[in-house]
Amino acid sequence: MRTSTIRNSLYATTLMFAFAAIPFGQVMAQDAGARMQQSSDNQTVPDKAADAWITTKVKSEFGTTKGISATNISVSTHDGVVTLSGTVSSQAEKERAERVAQLVKGVKSVDSSGLTIGGMPPTEK
Rank of each mutant, 00 (worst) to 15 (best):
R2N: 15
R2K: 15
T3W: 07
T3K: 14
S4E: 12
T5M: 05
I6M: 08
I6F: 12
R7A: 15
R7L: 14
R7D: 02
N8M: 07
N8C: 04
L10Y: 10
L10M: 12
L10A: 13
A12I: 11
A12C: 06
T13G: 15
L15R: 07
M16K: 00
F17Y: 08
A18I: 13
A18K: 00
A20L: 15
A20E: 05
A21F: 10
P23R: 01
P23D: 07
P23E: 03
F24I: 08
G25L: 12
G25K: 06
V27S: 11
A29F: 00
Q30Y: 11
Q30R: 09
A32Q: 13
A32C: 03
A34V: 12
A34C: 07
R35H: 12
R35G: 12
M36D: 13
Q38Y: 06
S39I: 11
S39R: 12
S40E: 13
D41I: 09
Q43M: 13
T44A: 07
P46T: 04
D47V: 11
K48P: 07
A49T: 13
A49D: 00
A49P: 04
A50R: 14
A50D: 14
A52F: 10
T55R: 12
T56G: 14
T56N: 11
K57W: 02
V58G: 07
K59C: 01
S60F: 08
E61W: 05
F62D: 12
F62C: 11
G63N: 12
G63Y: 02
G63D: 10
T64D: 10
T64S: 13
T64P: 01
T64Y: 00
T65G: 03
K66Y: 08
G67R: 03
G67C: 06
S69A: 14
A70E: 14
A70S: 15
N72L: 13
N72Y: 08
S74D: 15
S76I: 03
H78L: 11
D79T: 11
D79R: 09
D79C: 01
V81S: 02
V81I: 13
V81F: 01
V82Y: 05
V82E: 03
V82S: 01
T83K: 11
L84N: 04
L84V: 09
L84S: 01
S85A: 14
S85W: 01
G86V: 05
T87W: 00
T87M: 08
T87Q: 10
V88Y: 06
V88D: 10
S90K: 04
Q91M: 06
Q91P: 05
A92V: 07
E93S: 07
E93V: 05
E95S: 13
A97P: 09
A97T: 04
A97R: 07
A97N: 10
A97S: 12
A101R: 02
L103F: 00
K105C: 01
G106P: 04
V107C: 06
V107I: 08
V107L: 10
K108D: 09
K108E: 09
S109H: 04
I117P: 02
I117V: 15
I117G: 02
G118P: 03
G118N: 15
G119C: 08
G119Q: 05
M120T: 13
P121Q: 11
P121L: 11
P122Q: 06
T123C: 03
K125F: 05
